[in-house]
C-alpha cells in the first residue's frame, strides 16, 4: 500500500508528502491507507480533531476507490498551514456529479451496502469535513478528489 514519502523544505516551509496505492475491489484492505495517514499525522503532533477529520475524508475516499475503481492513488501533503489529501482513481467516473453529491444517492451494489457503506453519504461526509473540496471526473477515465483541511483555524469548526 505504501508508495514513497519525502520531506523537503521549500521557501523555508517544511513539506511532507507521501503517496499510497489503493487496490480496487479489495475490501479486506479498505481503510489501511486512512489508518496509516492517521498515524502519520498523529506522529507529527497535529491536534486530534484535525487528525480525525483528515482520516475521515481519507477513509471515505478510500472506500470509494475500493468500491468503484480498479486501482487508485492517494497522496498526502502536509505543510504548516494545511493537510491536503488527493485521491485519483482509474474508474468509470461519475456521470452526474450534482446527483452524486446528493445525500442518499448511491450506485453501490449489495456487497458495498452489506459493509455499511453505499448509503449515499460518503461524498457529503467528505465535503462537510473538509475546508476545501474539489471533485472532477471523466467518464470512462476516472475521478480526482482534492480535500484540504486547514491547520490554522480561522474560525472554530465544531458546534
Amino acid at each position: 500500500m505504501r508508495g514513497e514519502s519525502s520531506e523537503q523544505v521549500l521557501n523555508g516551509q517544511k513539506i511532507f508528502e507521501e503517496l499510497f496505492i489503493i487496490e480496487g475491489g479489495n475490501f479486506n484492505k479498505a481503510g489501511e491507507v486512512a489508518s496509516r495517514i492517521k498515524v502519520i499525522l498523529k506522529n507529527m503532533g497535529i491536534p486530534d480533531e484535525l487528525v480525525r477529520r483528515a482520516a475521515l475524508v481519507a477513509y471515505e475516499s478510500e472506500i470509494n476507490i475500493v468500491s468503484y475503481a480498479k486501482q487508485g492513488y492517494m497522496k498526502l501533503t502536509v505543510n504548516p498551514d494545511l493537510i491536503m489529501i488527493e485521491s485519483i482513481d482509474e474508474g468509470e467516473g461519475i456521470v452526474d456529479i450534482e446527483l452524486a453529491m446528493q445525500e442518499g444517492y448511491s450506485t453501490a451494489n449489495d456487497r458495498i451496502r452489506e459493509m455499511g457503506f453505499g448509503a449515499g453519504m460518503g461524498l457529503c461526509n467528505i465535503k462537510n469535513y473538509s475546508d476545501y473540496f474539489d471533485l472532477r471526473s471523466k467518464i470512462g477515465k476516472g475521478t480526482y478528489l482534492k480535500m484540504i483541511i486547514e491547520s490554522q483555524q480561522k474560525n472554530p469548526k465544531t458546534e
Partner: peptide, 17 residues
C-alpha cells in the same frame, strides 16, 4: 453499537477514536 461485524467497523472506529 452495531449489527455489523466486518473489519470496516474497526477501521471506522479507529478513524473516529
Amino acid at each position: 453499537l452495531t449489527g455489523l461485524t466486518n473489519p470496516q467497523v474497526i477501521r471506522t472506529a479507529n478513524v473516529l477514536d
